[in-house]
């Protein structure tokens, strides 16, 4: 049996604005997602995440290149209820109740799940008769999630999905997502919770300045930005010393936070040797970089390009 990719982007670019002040939001992305994958779309603000997601949803068209969703045009996939999204910017009507909002949305699809089932799944049965305007941010987010589940989508796009949810809500949310992915649903989520990407995604696609700078598992992405963090206590570190440190081979960055000195380096041994023999540094620690640092180092590289 042949399978269609859940999402396929080929040579996609997107520019905004008039010719003399063109903004290149997406500068050439090739990406293919298999059905059933959970993929994190990671990148700083303005990296092109939302622009790319908009194109997958057919809300905007690429300047150059092709986007297809399950082998269809994005708008066609949406009309068939194959794609759902929980967007940060997706508004809700304050004067409708939670249940009315779900019923309203459900009625727009040709095939849809039962309204009560979906309310139950999103954990908002109890607040079904409450006006949306009276719901908390987290409750509204669950409502958007309920609306997204209605058509039983093959592809679910989530833009910063757990913003406003408490820890418990976040955990429940992700266990629901994982259950559905096991049944073949593809999930693409944009997030700035790096930990969330590492913890819940099968695959992380790192995007910076409109390009993909890394694509792989959490471990692979971390390895790509190999290196360690050296921390030490060093009061009165003066400028000359910092310059000398920065010019050591394999040092990516030097910064001071109060009395602490933090050095990002591929060759942490050289940094440690320098600090312990040439300065008064004490309490020295060496750590492998977390995803957050890996993320920063990869997206900084994008700056120079």
């Amino acid at each position: 049996m042949t399978t269609t990719s859940a999402v396929r982007l080929e040579g996609v670019t997107k520019d905004f604005g008039p010719a003399h002040q063109r903004v290149h939001a997406v500068r050439g992305i090739d990406l293919e997602l298999q059905q059933g994958e959970i993929v994190a779309f990671l990148g700083p603000n303005g990296a092109g995440k939302t622009t790319t997601i908009d194109m997958v949803l057919g809300l905007s068209k690429p300047t150059i290149g092709d986007v297809s969703v399950l082998g269809l045009e994005p708008r066609d996939a949406i009309a068939r209820g194959l794609v759902s999204a929980v967007m940060q910017t997706g508004g809700l009507l304050k004067d409708l109740t939670v249940r009315e909002t779900v019923r309203y949305t459900a009625s727009l699809f040709a095939d849809t799940e039962d309204v009560d089932t979906v309310l139950e799944k999103a954990g908002i049965t109890a607040i079904g008769d409450r006006k949306v305007g009276k719901c908390s941010g987290g409750e509204q987010q669950r409502l958007r999630f309920a609306m997204a589940l209605l058509p039983d989508p093959a592809l679910l796009l989530l833009d910063e999905p757990t913003t406003g949810m408490d820890v418990e809500g976040r955990r429940a949310f992700w266990s629901a997502i994982r259950e559905d992915a096991a049944l073949g649903r593809t999930v693409l989520f944009a997030t700035h919770y790096l930990e969330e990407a590492d913890q819940y995604a099968d695959r992380i696609v790192l995007i910076s300045k409109g390009r993909i700078v890394a694509d792989g598992t959490g471990a692979q992405v971390k390895a790509m930005a190999s290196g360690r963090t050296v921390r030490a206590t060093l009061p009165d570190a003066h400028q000359d010393l910092l310059h000398e440190l920065a010019s050591l081979g394999g040092v990516d960055g030097v910064e001071t936070r109060g009395e602490s000195l933090i050095v990002q380096a591929k060759d942490s041994d050289a940094v440690a040797r320098f600090l312990l023999t040439r300065t008064d540094a004490r309490d020295l620690e060496i750590n492998a970089r977390g995803l957050e640092e890996a993320f920063l180092s990869l997206t900084d590289e994008g700056d120079d390009a």
Partner: peptide
Amino acid sequence: WSRQLRLTP
């Protein structure tokens, strides 16, 4: 809300 509706048919 219109943007939300654009995510439906």
